[in-house]
Design a protein around this nucleic acid. Structure first.
Lengths: 266, 266
DNA sequence: GGAATAGTGTCTATTAGACAATATGCT
DNA sequence: AGCATATTGTCTAATAGACACTATTCC
């Protein structure tokens, strides 16, 4: 907005529709999605293999152009489904489907795409581990990669990502780690019904540390609205069967769960 | 990025530069800034008066077009200075100047600007109250408005804002309220040197509630790296003079300050 | 029975909040 | 002196973490 400012002398004094496109630099706008899941106890993100240059054969985030009649939220959901077949739910299950998706941030370095000026609005989402999560239509291939297998810090250890997607993935992972502290979003990684231990393993995978099982159990079951008990208990494996739950209505945690032992300083 | 996907049949197999602009919908991209300060004990935001239609005479956020050779961070800082004369610092004082600025989120509803398709990347910032904070060059007028004077919820009570700027301001204010809980950013509102009471009045203005002065004092002075004592004490007014401080190196608070009395549920 | 996991009880150290008490300036 | 504000001390309730203990299943 504010399209009139910076060109005060020429732009429409009351010309809503016929705006001279030559007076502003044109951009392409894309929406990219960092979709995370817990697979085999590892935090993993969905990537697609690029079919064309630049970065042909390289792994990249699913995403693509925003259409002229849709907002970026819609574009993110649409592109994710078109490229991977995954239908993602929004905040509070707005759009149906399972999982969660929210805007992460926008990346706009002028040289981030070698072909042209592209600004991307990145999204970060969480989804339970799906038996066959990916069915590509537009991308050459798609799969979840463990975050630890990716070269997110430019050291050359791990799979490199196209464009500035390593940075975007790193930011998305950090957002997820932070959100687990003060929201109930960890449950978005769990397929219902799930046990307290399932939920704890989500936290352990995302934060890369073990948690005290007893204290975790007391904490999450004593938080109103986090977990709703359902009929049934876990069956497989040794040990006492666990009560099963579904996601409750609560979205934030007061007080938060702590990712790290309480540090001094900051 | 990912500019090739969605048009797999035609886009550059190796044509980095010469990209056909007709194959993607063009957008204008702007950067808008929600710059907040504490003025007369009230949380206030910087607005400019629009000189032209649409919304001529209406108050709007400072901001404008992103140039083709700059990222949105740079554009936000530049536009803020061009329209209001305010030079803002970045995270950790990156760019010099005082205050703080970070990306808020991106707004992309197709009809948010009646003239054309404009996506805006919004920023939120904090700055100490300046004696003469605004000196406009491009805008008709600029001033800080108390948040309570604005119609942010569409009820018609208060000053209306142009475009979707009421929503952006509301989101920015909420970001600031949340950030004060777990970061040391409240000090970005204070002109150095400042007293503990100055800092407490920032929290009280932003959160709209009173805090216990004694407990607040102990909390912030016992957090390593939040405040660095400097020579000198407050002088004016009645009461015992207070120790003066400058901002310390810490950026996050562990554990956080609580905005609300500890609630049950969530 | 033994191993393994679920869930509960209890103790302790830390912290937030209430509030009393002291310190030090202004008028 | 009397007031206002700053700063410190103390008490209490709540919470996190450690850990012992019980419960229930599979082998």
């Amino acid at each position: 907005m504010n399209a009139s400012r910076k060109r005060p002398a020429r732009d429409g004094h009351r010309a809503p529709a016929g705006y001279d496109a030559s007076k502003f630099p044109p951009f392409a706008v894309t929406a990219d999605v960092v979709l995370a899941t817990i697979r085999n106890g590892q935090l993993s993100v969905l990537l697609v293999e690029r079919a064309h240059d630049p970065y042909a054969g390289c792994w990249a985030l699913p995403g693509g152009f925003v259409n002229s009649d849709e907002d970026t939220d819609t574009a993110a959901v649409r592109e994710l489904e078109e490229e991977t077949g995954i239908v993602i739910g929004g905040p509070a299950g707005e759009t149906g489907g399972t999982g969660y998706l929210e805007q992460l941030r926008t990346y706009s370095a002028p040289d981030r795409d070698p072909r042209m000026r592209v600004v991307t609005v990145a999204y970060v989402g969480m989804i339970p581990d799906l038996p066959n999560p990916v069915a590509s239509s537009d991308a050459a291939a798609a799969r979840f990669w463990p975050v630890s297998d990716l070269d997110l810090d430019g050291t050359g250890d791990g799979i490199p990502l196209a464009f500035d997607h390593a940075r975007i993935v790193a930011d998305g992972i950090e957002r997820i780690r932070a959100k687990l502290e003060y929201t109930t979003l960890a449950a978005a990684f769990c397929e219902e019904p799930f046990s307290v231990a399932d939920l704890r393993r989500v936290y352990e995978a995302v934060w890369g540390r073990t948690l005290n099982a007893q204290n975790f159990h007391r904490k999450v079951t004593s938080t109103n609205g986090f977990l709703e008990p359902v009929e049934g208990r876990t069956s497989s494996g040794p040990g006492r069967p666990a009560q099963l739950y579904r996601r409750g209505a609560a979205t934030t945690l007061h007080p938060p769960l702590m990712r790290q032992e309480t540090k001094e300083d900051c």
